[in-house]
């Protein structure tokens, strides 16, 4: 990678991270939504662990934490896509395209800022979860696997949203970024294990790649890694596909700029 690439990436990342931490309208929703989900479902549905067939030894709080970790990581990426769209609306991106010596660095910069946003949210949720009784059964290697999966999914979500934002170049593209991720996340075994799902969501979860990732994350949390290779395979495949998608978006934006 050239020095120009990293210089652009650093500049874009710094600007976005600065905007994020100095704008309550960005920080608050990014924190509140995963936090609400965690509190509402770990608290409100804690009785679910008494359902016959619920066999997750680490308990319901840990079970829900696995989902909220993934949600926070992926939505950290999606919210960065919103920032990309906002930069196009304000005209900043056009100027950036003209000035950047290596335009790939622009996407890398947005990715770095998505990573920082997600890490900030995940750190806060982890603290709240630990206070609420999160039971981390896994060792250091399990935690490394757990957070690596979260980082890969954060990258995939951010690259997808950036691809959409660079093609449509308007904030109105928000639902087009959010909705597919929302469906992928919620059509997985969110509140109960896969075997306890019923109806059409059970069928959808069996085809959903996020099911593998979520089950693997919960395995790492419990200290009983499961489906590790397929989960990493799916995560890396998603990153590879979304890299191509984002690159196509960048080309589309370059043509217009």
């Amino acid at each position: 990678m050239s020095r120009g690439f990293w210089a652009v990436a650093r500049g874009v990342a710094w600007r976005n991270i600065h905007n994020f931490f100095t704008n309550p309208a960005m920080v608050i929703p990014a924190l509140l939504f995963p936090l609400f989900f965690f509190i509402a479902f770990a608290g409100g549905l804690s009785r679910v662990d008494s359902i016959p067939g619920f066999d997750y030894a680490a308990g319901y709080t840990t079970f829900v934490y696995g989902f909220v970790l993934l949600q926070a990581s992926m939505f950290g990426g999606i919210f960065t896509g919103f920032s990309v769209a906002r930069d196009f609306e304000s005209g900043f991106s056009r100027r950036l395209m003209l000035a950047a010596s290596h335009r790939g660095g622009i996407v890398a910069g947005y990715w770095l800022s998505a990573l920082v946003r997600a890490l900030f949210t995940v750190a806060l949720i982890t603290v709240v979860a630990l206070v609420a009784g999160l039971d981390l059964g896994g060792g250091a290697v399990d935690l490394l696997g757990l957070y690596t999966l979260a980082v890969l999914l954060n990258a995939a979500a951010m690259l997808f949203a950036t691809g959409v934002a660079m093609r449509l170049r308007t904030m109105q593209a928000g639902p087009a970024m959010q909705m597919p991720m929302f469906l992928l996340l919620f059509l997985a075994p969110v509140w109960v294990p896969y075997d306890l799902l019923t109806g059409w969501v059970h069928a959808a979860a069996s085809f959903n790649p996020i099911t593998l990732v979520l089950e693997s994350i919960r395995g790492f949390l419990e200290g009983d890694p499961t489906k590790v290779l397929p989960a990493f395979g799916v995560a890396l495949l998603l990153v590879a596909v979304t890299v191509l998608w984002a690159r196509g978006g960048l080309r589309s934006a370059e043509r217009v700029a």
Binding site: I28, L32, I39, G43, G44, S46
Partner: peptide, 29 residues
């Protein structure tokens, strides 16, 4: 208005939305 919207959702989430109140196990909740 958009900023207050998440607070409305908090009110919904912190209710007997998912389970009847007498089946909620966590005391503070």
């Amino acid at each position: 208005v958009q900023g207050v919207f998440p607070l409305f959702f908090a009110a919904l989430f912190l209710s007997s939305m998912a389970l009847p109140r007498d089946l909620i196990e966590i005391g503070w909740f």
